[in-house]
Amino acid sequence: MKFIASTTTRLLFPVMLAASLAACQTTSSPLVDGDSGVSYGDAKAVETVTTDLGSTDIQMTSEKMTQSLLQHPLVREIIRKRQLVVASPVQNKTSEYFDTALISDTILVQLQKNGIRYVVAGDEMQNQVDELRRQNQSGLYNQAKTAKIGNMQGAKYRIDGSVSSIKKRNANVKDVYYKINLRLIEIESGIVEWSDEKEIRKTARR
């Protein structure tokens, strides 16, 4: 019996050792980084790298504006009647550069998820015109099946707005106050049907 136990131990030891060593190993990640030090972060994290307008400001503003718009009875009517909305460029009145389309584009995407339809405008309009011309004037397409010129639909409402800032600084502190204002305007009458604003204060110690 003693011999059997001893033999069993001798046989099991390498197996147990291999199993324990295997448990200590790490698995390789599906990653090619070349020791670059680059990594992916959380796009929804609060970003406080500088006092400049950043991703968190854009995300918070878009979220607040969408929530505010959805609460307005007119927006519910726009959804119900399937009326069209267009976004005019948001004016950047601050001294720093950032793409204001980030705000309006995000709001339009979030509104569309709730049933609002919007039409292309601004920079995207040229692509739309180019495609219509290509289909109708290039002679390459079957004219019975092309999208016809003159059938685009105009929006009933437009969204526009502005971003303003006040900057203050002394030897120790830099303080920036942002105000982002958005409006929903009936295009035919020019009446502002809805407006809201988001205030943001960012302070940095120098």
Partner: peptide, 25 residues
């Protein structure tokens, strides 16, 4: 979609009210 994290400062001994409306019906 996953919401962004939002920062909020709450002063000492302050009661802070957060009012939020869902972004979807």
């Amino acid at each position: 979609e996953e919401e962004p994290w939002k920062p909020e400062t709450i002063y000492g001994k302050q009661s802070k009210v957060l009012n939020v409306t869902s972004p979807t019906l």
